[in-house]
Design a protein around this nucleic acid. Structure first.
Lengths: 155, 155
DNA sequence: ACTGAAAGTCGTTGCAT
DNA sequence: ATGCAACGACTTTCAGT
């Protein structure tokens, strides 16, 4: 993945597309000050370069009854490559795990898990986390409130 | 925010819109097995009910040179309502802070911060976090690797 | 690189079931 | 609730600058 030059037009395009992924090419062109054709070519280029990885609808966890967010700190027993790889593979497959990062600090991984309620979380832990091989410690920090939650990159 | 009934069509629609927020209504209708008009009316309803909060382009941090993710654990000195509210307000305004949750456990808040490099992170801490009133402790856990990172809710 | 126009596709609405 | 049909708007391509 290599870097590339981005001018003000590209930055504006990315900004508006983060804000509204379904904005019409015409509106976008108006907002950034390009003709629709020129704007469209730039968007295409940004997609092909990989700067735009995709588009997604943002759903509301509250409205959909998936209101519980938990930060799960996981430490593995031994840091062998293969047990780590298997952990990552399994965890990636769980739909309840929205995010998983390998981190510095006391834990090896931090996961953000989203479930409808506490009993679902209990089931998730017992059936999907505690059954994994090589788990040393699991610590759950429950989200009391969501202050901010986007994936919008600063440009 | 009240719950509402969702049938299989709605679930399929949300699933596909999470996967591709720019899918055309016709393709979506094909995929879920509805006519374009019926599908479009359901999408409209889901938007109005708030189940769909919006749409966004997903950008690639690596390609855009915003490769460093840090989990910042923040504890406040006294849990007065007003200092907490001010902290939340300020932190929400920082573009580097993609996510912020009030959590249980040792810290009061966990923030996910994204910056281009370590020196930018240093500046972020000194100029934007350490200057806030009532900060008791700040602990930084750096993301070594991103295993999974979506906002896709399990349906 | 950009603009403007042309052609095809799609979103959106109204109406009937 | 659904499908069909029609109009207007849009996306996308291509030639010219």
């Amino acid at each position: 993945m290599k870097q590339f030059e981005m001018d003000t037009y590209d930055r504006k395009i990315l900004h508006h597309l983060q804000q509204d992924g379904r904005i019409s090419n015409q509106q976008l062109a108006d907002n950034v000050g390009l003709s629709p054709a020129a704007c469209w070519r730039r968007v295409r280029a940004l997609e092909e370069q990989g700067a735009i990885a995709g588009y997604s609808a943002l759903l509301s966890p509250e409205v959909l009854g998936q209101a519980m967010s938990v930060f799960v700190l996981v430490s593995l027993q031994r840091h062998h490559i293969d047990s780590t790889a298997e952990f990552e593979q399994q965890v990636s497959a769980y739909p309840e795990v929205l995010q998983c990062f390998a981190v510095t600090g006391n834990a090896d991984f931090v996961l953000r898990v989203v479930v409808p309620d506490m009993s679902s979380y209990d089931r998730f832990l017992n059936e999907k986390i505690f059954t994994l091989q090589g788990i040393a410690q699991v610590h759950s920090n429950f989200a009391l409130r969501e202050i901010k939650n986007t994936q919008h990159l600063p440009l």
